[in-house]
Design a binder for these strands. Sequence first.
DNA 1: CATGAATGAGCATTCATTCAT
DNA 2: CATGAATGAATGCTCATTCAT
Lengths: 177, 177, 177, 177
Amino acid sequence: MKCFARHGYHAASVSHIIEEADIARGTFYLYFKSKHDIFKEILDAFISHISAQINLVDMKSETSPLLQMRANIDRTLNAITEKPELAKILFNEAVGLDDETQSRLKEFYGRLISIIRSAIERGVEFGIIREVDSAIAACVALGAIKEVVTQTAILGNLKIAKSNLIDGMMDIFFGGA
Amino acid sequence: MKCFARHGYHAASVSHIIEEADIARGTFYLYFKSKHDIFKEILDAFISHISAQINLVDMKSETSPLLQMRANIDRTLNAITEKPELAKILFNEAVGLDDETQSRLKEFYGRLISIIRSAIERGVEFGIIREVDSAIAACVALGAIKEVVTQTAILGNLKIAKSNLIDGMMDIFFGGA
Amino acid sequence: MKCFARHGYHAASVSHIIEEADIARGTFYLYFKSKHDIFKEILDAFISHISAQINLVDMKSETSPLLQMRANIDRTLNAITEKPELAKILFNEAVGLDDETQSRLKEFYGRLISIIRSAIERGVEFGIIREVDSAIAACVALGAIKEVVTQTAILGNLKIAKSNLIDGMMDIFFGGA
Amino acid sequence: MKCFARHGYHAASVSHIIEEADIARGTFYLYFKSKHDIFKEILDAFISHISAQINLVDMKSETSPLLQMRANIDRTLNAITEKPELAKILFNEAVGLDDETQSRLKEFYGRLISIIRSAIERGVEFGIIREVDSAIAACVALGAIKEVVTQTAILGNLKIAKSNLIDGMMDIFFGGA
DNA sequence: CATGAATGAGCATTCATTCAT
DNA sequence: CATGAATGAATGCTCATTCAT
């Protein structure tokens, strides 16, 4: 993780990895079929973990839709903050990777957008959210989350306590509702 | 540009570049110090071009602040849409590049955020925008623009006419104002 | 044997051997000093076995010299046909092996040639064989046997019953005597 | 050639080759696609060259069939003697090579055998050669030539002038005719 | 100015061998 | 005795860079 996050897929060499892990060259290939294999394994696990944090908003639940959305963001932010290196990979390694990985990434983001979009549409339907173009709004929301994570957890440019961050984002998105 | 955008910095080889440009190997090194040098030059020019599209919001101008913001977004989107390949690099190649380039990128995004932030703060001050945490909001806005560009101009997942896109984003950001 | 014959010395890996033998890696090195050691042992045993099949032609024996030669060829062919894999090694792995093995091989073939040569010379002496250059003739005979074995037992290009084969060769060598 | 002949295909490394040729690693790959490519190229050229030395025996020619055969052997021996290293490869590298090369080798030897066989059959037909099993005889002849070459040109065990060698072989094969 | 053959450091990967359990 | 995880030297190959023409 550390190596891939620091140097990206291409520049992270097996030599870096085994030096960081303090194991021999052969040992690496005892546990991973190839350099690509370890990257896929790391990325897959992280995508699954992140995906598991996000639940579809249930309008029949006792918890209010807004609180459900907040909980989704909260859990996702937690998961990402725990492994900022992986988030860096997830947000930046879309270029120059093999087609399989690229489509895995595309699928992941597609799923994310469609979840967010359906949440927005339900919100509009139930009058919680003002009428907006849900396609654009979902895109905006995803980009917002990615950028906030990048600036706080990855780059460290923006230093804000997590709870304030979530409240701030909820406020911006849902107009202080 | 074509090569870097298509394959990313690492996978784009000097061989690709000289083949695409139909020049000899030596000729390449006559005009660029290194592979990294041409990349830096391309990136720098694009960053300057984008930066030039964004004007600070002038409250004394005859044009309303909102329209100035809209014009900023419009021009930026135009500049990006003209060179989607470069945008792809700008948005995705933050990992695995040398420290110098990474800090150039960091600086560029920092400048962007501070411009957006000051615009938001003025907007709040003049009652155009509802009171929000400007640091978070600037971050949200930047991420939103990046993601919208990525999904429309780069990935092509989201097919929306540019004017509708801007209106949609203005609507989302400024509450239908 | 199976591994070395199937893939040759270099391409046959210790992994192949221990898998085929269904033993652990360490166990292999308990019984053989090295990969080369097991190869040497196999080759040595086979060379000894083949050598044991060949008796010097005894002119005082009741059995005719020609029949003694025939019996030599018969026994040798039998020994080889029983282990075609080893014959393949013996006939083809002369290149790329260490000097020690190469000289062992050279010595084996040297012994074979001198046995054949002395048999030919006795045959000429006793008027059984027409006068020929015994050095060349011995070489011709050895090469003939090697090639016949290769084409029948190893490559399977030439499909001939063993007894016909021997008769055919005797006929060619000893002029229908 | 030198490297492949000395160490065989597998043990001859690209490092050996470039050291022997006194060129850089990259230069090697400028002229050959891979290690396998250079081997194939060497082998193919030699096979073609050898094949070119052998003419079908023409019964209508003014030159006697026996002299034609002698000329064939003469030319072939010359071609081989000029490049003993290549002959070593040709005669010994049947094991452990890729299927393509193996079948190329098999085809070459098959062609050789069928040429020899048809020559023998014509010889029998025209009463020059005593009636023999042509399949076995062709095999015997090929093996004889290979072994004679190995012992004289490659191993140097048998030191005989080329003309004596050919006469000796003709004598053995064609009964002093 | 332009060329492209030559370079060699660096890469991912393999595999014979060792040794603590 | 048997095991198999760990090792690291060696391999085939790539590619950014140089320099004589």
